[in-house]
Design a protein around this nucleic acid. Structure first.
Lengths: 160, 160
DNA sequence: TATTGTTATACTCTATAACTATA
DNA sequence: TATAGTTATAGAGTATAACAATA
């Protein structure tokens, strides 16, 4: 939470915790970053119970939907550079969730193992539940989640 | 941009770049993170021309609005831990933008120097311009920026 | 010449534990 | 006992350059 009410105490000389004016809340970039932190932290602690990070769960889900894709494909989809995909894929291969089969001579087709399929289903179930929970909370608070997602998609396309 | 059209080429065997199904776009946490990356990258490259990072510009702006606050106050406001505030504040002091005066014996009141006031005005001008530009683009695309900010504020409060 | 996978490296951001001085 | 500032450190995440093998 960008303004932590838990830290507000009785006002003392020099205590600005409760009364600071807040230019941060008017800056879209910061609001987006803080909002994503809140949501990713919640998702992260859920997925930690099955020893997956959000990015790993997302990779499993992407491979499930796109069997045979390469790690470069995944990197492009997730805006993660080739070099940084290496330890991610290695980790998932080592744990037996995905396997590589020669596709191209220079590239490998990625697929889920049986263990990976099970893990992916667990992860997707958690992600869906998390997503639904947030959508419900926002909906109850009078926010239009579909509109929000449309706006976010528009922002993502600004850098094109 | 979460789906980089620049990398799409004529479809070949094994090329999933252009056709991958995209579960990412349905996950709010990822969408928020990617959207914030796009916006912060733009703001970052603007502020780089005056040798400030977004977080530094925000700190200057917060001190301008809350003269005499402490670095712990700033940390609470920005969700940055005490330990991680140290190099940030040290850097701004070293460059002559802010000064510390003993407040409490254990804490220091932070204020902008004359140089810091000038730097802050430059930074705020850039941030306002950046913010306005994005708001206009979203508005033209039919999105309600005020609604978006309300939704983001609601999300930030979910972790309370 | 361009792409894939890889190694090495570096820089930022974040998180934790511990210590001192002060309230 | 709690807070402010600090140090040290470790883990993510991200970025670039370079290389070999392949297309």
């Amino acid at each position: 939470m960008w303004f932590d009410m838990k830290n507000i105490k009785t006002t003392e000389a020099g205590d600005f915790s409760a009364i600071m004016h807040n230019p941060v809340g008017r800056h879209l970039g910061y609001m987006l970053r803080r909002a994503s932190s809140v949501i990713m932290a919640g998702l992260g602690s859920s997925l930690a119970s099955i020893d997956l990070r959000p990015v790993e769960a997302t990779i499993l889900s992407l491979i499930a939907t796109n069997p045979g894709c390469t790690q470069s494909d995944l990197g492009r989809m997730l805006s993660i550079q080739r070099a940084n995909m290496v330890p991610l894929i290695t980790g998932l291969v080592t744990r037996g969730y995905i396997c590589k089969t020669a596709a191209d001579g220079r590239s490998h087709a990625l697929n889920l193992t049986e263990q990976g399929i099970a893990k992916c289903q667990e992860a997707e179930s958690m992600m869906d539940q998390h997503e639904t929970s947030i959508a419900q909370q926002l909906d109850r608070a009078g926010h239009d989640v579909a509109r929000l997602e449309e706006a976010l998609t528009a922002i993502m396309k600004l850098s094109a």
